[in-house]
């Protein structure tokens, strides 16, 4: 009997939860805010689904009732992707070590 592809996706999902569990516990507490902003940015990879929806013009017109939702989702996800990564970068740039040369 063949295994349903869903089971493979489920395996990826479960294993990723464990990967996430161990990776996130190793994040230093002082970087918890950047962790939140970067997880925010990467969860916007949902834009992949939005692009598929936006480009699905099988009726011939660019704007149909489903592609409009795709375009809206693209805009929202794009705000998050750019905003999330840039604000994370801005925060991380501020974390500096003590200057050893100056006493």
């Amino acid at each position: 009997m063949e295994i349903d592809p869903f089971i493979f996706r489920l395996s990826i999902f479960i294993l990723s939860i464990f990967v996430g569990y161990y990776v996130v516990w190793s994040v230093t507490p002082s970087l918890h805010t950047p962790l939140m902003s970067v997880t925010n940015a990467i969860s916007s990879v949902i834009i992949v689904g939005a692009i598929i929806a936006g480009l699905a013009n099988d009726t011939g017109s660019v704007f149909n009732n489903s592609s409009i939702f795709g375009f809206l989702a693209i805009t929202l996800a794009a705000v998050n992707i750019f905003g999330g990564f840039l604000v994370t970068q801005r925060m991380l740039a501020m974390y500096k070590k003590k200057k050893k040369d100056k006493k």
Partner: peptide, 10 residues
């Protein structure tokens, strides 16, 4: 998406 969702969720 599945990997990211699981990472962010946990």
């Amino acid at each position: 998406l599945i990997i990211t969702g699981a990472l962010v969720g946990s």
